[in-house]
Amino acid sequence: MERAASVVDAFAQRMREQEELTLSPLAVRSYGGRGRERPEEQCGVRTPFQRDRDRLVHSKPFRRLKGKTQVFIDPQGDHYRTRMTHTLETTAISRVVARALRLNEDLVEAIGLGHDTGHTPFGHAGEQALDDVLCARFGRRFRHNEQSYRIARRLNLTHEVCQGILTHTGSREPETLEGKIVRLVDRVAYINHDIDDAIRYGILRDSDLPVDEIGLLGPTGSERIDTLVHDIVVASEEAGDIRQSDEVGEAMLSLRAFMFERVYLGPHAEPEHRRAHDVVRAIFERLVAEPERLPAGEGDLPDRIMDYVAGMTDRFALAYAASL
């Protein structure tokens, strides 16, 4: 036991010294934070944030992301993005930004991997549908970031990771620069890969994309991401915070507005949204009427229904509704 304790102490000390040499003064350190709600022994070969990353990767909510599509409901094709691929793209880009700014890559990675674990099936259409039925029946609201936060707390992740997951969207700002990176890069990732998927689906053509924004950011997804990442790094280094330049930031917001108009809320989206709402409502109403169908879980009836429905993959939800 003494030998094991010495190994743990030596690893932690080595990591502290390494971070003092390599990280920015603005970076969160891996040791000395607010820790976990339920205290645990330190791991002898991983920092707390590395342990959070591994705990997420090995969790069921993370694995189910591969069965939750990003924009289109259960599309026929192997190359459409899922929540899993979106999560991996967001995490990878976030690590690039963090390394360039000498911030804590392990913290960024854990937040990135966990940020969408609470997302519903059927993307934001499913999220809206679950929010609608919960509000109408129980006066409760559903937000996927809050559900991801619930999962993170159940996994007993560190405060810094939990808080970054909770604030990756919504009105609350992240406490750390690492959390701010994931919040911004989440948009960088989904805007660009959703353009790619919309073109593959036949909703958009390259010629439909707004000329000025594409001229500034780049004609391909990879070029746009490269432009956006370089801009974030330069603007953030100058500001001592996570920022975009005005010109590039406005172009990205304009491109996002275009995607909402033409793709997320466009004419093709109405039947997809109706389908998602019908499926979620049918499952919800049956679970309210027959709560014995629910697996064992924590919390009151709304919590248990929310956990079960939000955890479903697209195909499971479609099959479950059909079986009713």
Results as ranks from 00 to 15, higher is better:
129 A>T: 00
127 E>V: 11
206 D>A: 15
196 D>H: 02
305 I>W: 04
149 Y>H: 09
73 I>W: 01
81 R>M: 10
76 Q>G: 06
90 T>D: 05
166 L>Q: 03
164 G>Q: 03
266 G>M: 06
199 I>R: 07
147 Q>W: 02
109 E>H: 04
69 T>V: 00
163 Q>G: 02
148 S>G: 01
65 L>I: 11
68 K>Y: 09
310 A>Q: 02
118 G>R: 03
277 H>E: 15
33 G>A: 09
135 C>M: 14
109 E>M: 02
312 M>K: 00
135 C>V: 10
205 R>T: 13
146 E>P: 03
182 V>F: 03
247 E>Y: 08
289 A>F: 02
295 P>N: 12
143 R>V: 02
294 L>E: 08
59 S>V: 09
288 V>C: 09
204 L>N: 05
232 I>F: 01
141 R>S: 13
207 S>K: 14
299 G>M: 08
117 T>D: 00
71 V>C: 12
77 G>M: 11
24 S>V: 13
98 A>G: 04
277 H>Q: 14
173 E>G: 06
182 V>I: 11
213 E>V: 12
9 D>G: 14
204 L>D: 00
261 E>Q: 14
29 R>E: 09
225 I>Y: 05
267 P>E: 14
31 Y>I: 04
302 P>S: 11
115 H>T: 07
78 D>A: 11
271 P>E: 14
130 L>S: 01
70 Q>K: 12
108 V>H: 00
311 G>K: 03
259 M>K: 07
75 P>A: 10
129 A>W: 00
69 T>S: 15
113 L>N: 04
256 R>P: 02
216 L>S: 10
71 V>K: 11
67 G>T: 10
138 F>D: 01
262 R>D: 04
7 V>A: 05
141 R>I: 09
286 R>M: 07
174 P>I: 05
207 S>G: 11
305 I>P: 01
